[in-house]
């Protein structure tokens, strides 16, 4: 399949089931809400070592937030409900509770609760105040700039993580420019998260390693410096760089839509942009329960 001179490879992305939640952080202004959100979602690129994959979903106008202040919605993904609970509590406790003027609320509903302020309230040392409003419990924790207001519980939903596509280009600059365009298009969509720095990953990985202690190692099939050395290299002589966009979404459809939007954004650049091919990462279809076939998506 060729789109605007760019080849869409006959392959598929393989994704996994995850647990996710959405949190709404509000503050005196958008700047402080963003500072809290960025701090809270820092060091959250991959569950392999960060415990969670997290990032900013969207900016929210005051009329969209529970307390009528400027806000940011944040998505957090983890491999298990228990790990998600741990990550929410740690990250909110260290990064939002501490940030001037902030408050935090649940941004998602489900039958599966995740503690938000339930344990953080004990920071109030007995001076914390509970308020039940419309069937939801909120905690008012006294802090030095007034009160930290947080909802007692958020919720978790089943989600999809690890959707991806690879952009193969003649040069590193060209691959990066194309990916940046894809990231801008995907970030306009709701319910999706691009967990890697700037939404782009350069260190795509394969399962396993020659070193027994490592679960994953570099994806030698797409490393241009291993062309002619690695027996599994999939790069022709014209490919100078490959970058990957990893997509987590609240549903399979969200990941599908985001993948399509991203690839379309790259393809509109045309072959003159230096982009040669779109591929995807998978593990032979044996590990992940979700498969996103690129040609089916783009048909």
């Amino acid at each position: 399949m060729i789109r605007n001179g760019i080849e869409i490879e006959d392959t598929f992305a393989e994704a996994f089931g995850m647990n996710a939640t959405r949190l709404v952080i509000t503050a005196l202004d958008h700047r402080w809400a963003r500072i809290a959100a960025e701090t809270m979602t820092g060091f959250a690129t991959s569950v392999i070592a960060c415990g969670a994959e997290a990032g900013i979903e969207a900016e929210m106008a005051p009329e969209q937030t529970p307390d009528g202040r400027p806000g940011i919605s944040v998505l957090l993904f983890a491999m298990s409900g228990k790990e998600l609970e741990k990550q929410v509590e740690r990250r909110v406790g260290q990064c939002v509770l501490t940030c001037p003027t902030t408050a935090i609320f649940s941004g998602i509903a489900s039958e599966k609760p995740v503690p938000l302020g339930k344990n953080l309230r004990f920071f109030g040392d007995g001076y914390q105040i509970s308020k039940q409003i419309d069937g939801r419990r909120y905690w008012r924790v006294p802090v030095m700039d007034g009160e930290f207001l947080c909802e007692e519980l958020t919720a978790r939903v089943g989600a999809v993580g690890g959707g991806n596509f690879l952009v193969l280009a003649r040069t590193q600059t060209q691959a990066l420019a194309a990916c940046e365009r894809a990231v801008a298009a995907i970030r306009a969509l709701p319910n999706v998260l691009l967990p890697f720095p700037g939404g782009i990953a350069r260190s795509g990985s394969k399962v396993g390693s020659k070193y027994k202690a490592l679960m994953a190692s570099t994806n030698d099939a797409f490393c241009p410096t291993l062309r002619g050395l690695s027996p599994s290299s999939q790069l022709g002589s014209e490919v100078g760089a490959v970058l990957e966009i990893v997509i987590n979404g609240l549903t399979e459809d969200d990941v599908r839509q985001a993948t399509r939007t991203g690839i379309e954004a790259v393809c509109t650049l045309g072959a003159d942009s230096g982009v040669l091919r779109i591929s995807a990462g998978n593990y032979g279809g044996k590990l992940g329960q979700y498969h996103f076939h690129l040609r089916e998506l783009m048909a």
Partner: peptide, 13 residues
């Protein structure tokens, strides 16, 4: 005098 954002939540409900 105190600024309490919980009052916004309450008023909305």
């Amino acid at each position: 005098p105190q600024d309490l954002s919980v009052l916004t939540l309450l008023a909305k409900s």
